[in-house]
Design a protein around this nucleic acid. Structure first.
Ligand SMILES: NC(=O)c1ccc[n+]([C@@H]2O[C@H](COP(=O)([O-])OP(=O)(O)OC[C@H]3O[C@@H](n4cnc5c(N)ncnc54)[C@H](O)[C@@H]3O)[C@@H](O)[C@H]2O)c1
Ligand SMILES: NC(=O)c1ccc[n+]([C@@H]2O[C@H](COP(=O)([O-])OP(=O)(O)OC[C@H]3O[C@@H](n4cnc5c(N)ncnc54)[C@H](O)[C@@H]3O)[C@@H](O)[C@H]2O)c1
Lengths: 211, 211
DNA sequence: ATAACAGCGTTATACTTTTCACAATTATAG
DNA sequence: CTATAATTGTGAAAAGTATAACGCTGTTAT
């Protein structure tokens, strides 16, 4: 069965909400509560859970711990996924800081940059390697996911090197569409697009609300 | 007429592709060329253009300059939109550097932080103000769009202050859903979600391609 | 000229995703 | 133990998106 992309996105959010509840000692949660927190409908939440098979109980809801574990297993594999980060500039460093120690089975295990000054350093617990060493490091660290944070002109060649070295999932921060084979999944995170989208709909909403 | 969110996203991409072509001296482009570059079908491209009314010509395609101008006007208003950035930490600074000088009518005009050491400084051409001055600065700079890059615990209160001060469009980098009135448009940029989505589909694709 | 072709604009069709609605299930109170 | 109320799981309907199809327009070649 093919899980819709939107469902996967929401699952990621539900997982964090469940995590937060666990921290607060909340042992169970209803679909309508998750719905309110996530900003969706309760049907949507239950429908999304059909894809992961997590079961709730009428009048009791979903067990927070089970829910978190269920989503976790569904999203990320049972054995931890290694992640590589290419391009340790302004954004790369921020990303590294952000993910450091955050997600137990989705860890940035190696960084790559072409700047000789950065190679060999350890930033936020992560070693920076030369891009020449990409293939061997990815193999030895069992890395199959990568984050691209290099200047746009180098994004495509970086993607190709990564794929060559066995990567089949990429988060791309460079503002260019990547040309990749069909068995590689790419998510483009595009700040310009986000801002322009907001600019557009903010304006539309103003017009609507003024009528 | 309501433009689908996905269409708006693609338009942002087409605009940049048109921009790039202009730089390369390419005066016109066919829908199937844009389609290939954007990774969509040519029908999709022509369909998307129906929303902005941009016209092409059989056998000639779309005039690159007209196309760029048309999308520009559709996405962002004719009079430049002012943008505020709240939270000048690792991510905030990277974002500021990224947008600086990039987009003529979508400019970050004011930054806000609560750290006294940062207030008063000018970073990438942008003055950092105290959050106390938010309402007055937003009014005087005619800002109605904001980027939130404060720690998650402060995201909701920051959103409320911004909305209070007249903002009706927000790009939210904090990994929490914001609770906002219906006339405010929010786009959540969620790195964790992106990475988990990639982890999920990368794994699925591997399984599929192994069959 | 005009035939042959290429590509746009749009309508119709197919597909995907969300919402609705309700039977089945479980907790709780009397 | 039974009635009541609350909440789940899911089929069916609706809404939202993407693709296909095709008439029309403009270009090129003969
Ligand atoms: N800064 C932001 O907030 C932001 C936002 C959205 C997108 N982006 C995009 O992310 C990318 C990086 O942005 P940045 O602001 O960090 O830029 P940056 O210039 O600060 O950093 C780029 C880094 O990549 C390294 N690099 C260059 N070529 C390389 C190569 N071929 N292989 C490996 N490393 C290489 C450089 O040495 C540098 O460390 C750019 O494509 C940018 O458009 C940045
Ligand atoms: N660093 C990343 O790559 C990254 C990625 C995704 C999301 N985020 C999110 O973006 C936000 C910022 O991340 P960061 O890494 O820049 O954090 P950071 O700690 O480096 O920076 C936070 C900044 O916000 C300021 N601040 C704190 N409270 C404030 C308030 N109430 N009003 C105004 N300013 C305030 C701080 O003074 C600081 O300058 C966080 O919510 C984080 O989860 C960061």
């Amino acid at each position: 069965m093919v899980t819709p992309e939107k469902t996967v996105e929401r699952l990621s959010l539900y997982r964090r909400l469940a995590e937060e509840m666990l921290r607060e000692g909340k042992m169970s949660v209803f679909s309508h509560q998750l719905a309110e927190m996530a900003g969706v409908t309760s049907s949507q939440v239950r429908r999304d859970f059909m894809f992961i098979g997590t079961q709730g109980r009428a009048n009791t809801g979903y067990n927070t711990k089970e829910l978190k574990a269920g989503i976790d297993q569904f999203l990320v594999s049972h054995e931890p996924d290694g992640v590589a980060l290419v391009g340790i500039g302004n954004l790369g460093r921020a990303v590294l800081a952000f993910f450091h120690g955050r997600r137990p089975n989705l860890i940035i295990k190696a960084c790559f940059d072409k700047d000789p000054d950065k190679i060999g350093r350890i930033i936020h617990g992560c070693r920076v390697y030369s891009i020449e060493d990409m293939a061997s490091v990815l193999l030895s660290e069992k890395i199959n996911i990568a984050i691209i944070a290099v200047p746009r002109a180098f994004a495509q060649e970086t993607a190709e090197k990564l794929i060559q070295a066995g990567v089949n999932g990429i988060v791309n921060f460079a503002p260019v569409p990547l040309n990749v084979p069909g068995n590689v999944y790419v998510d483009n995170v595009d700040f310009t697009m986000s801002l322009e989208k907001v600019a557009h709909f903010a304006r539309k909403q103003k017009i609507v609300s003024e009528i």
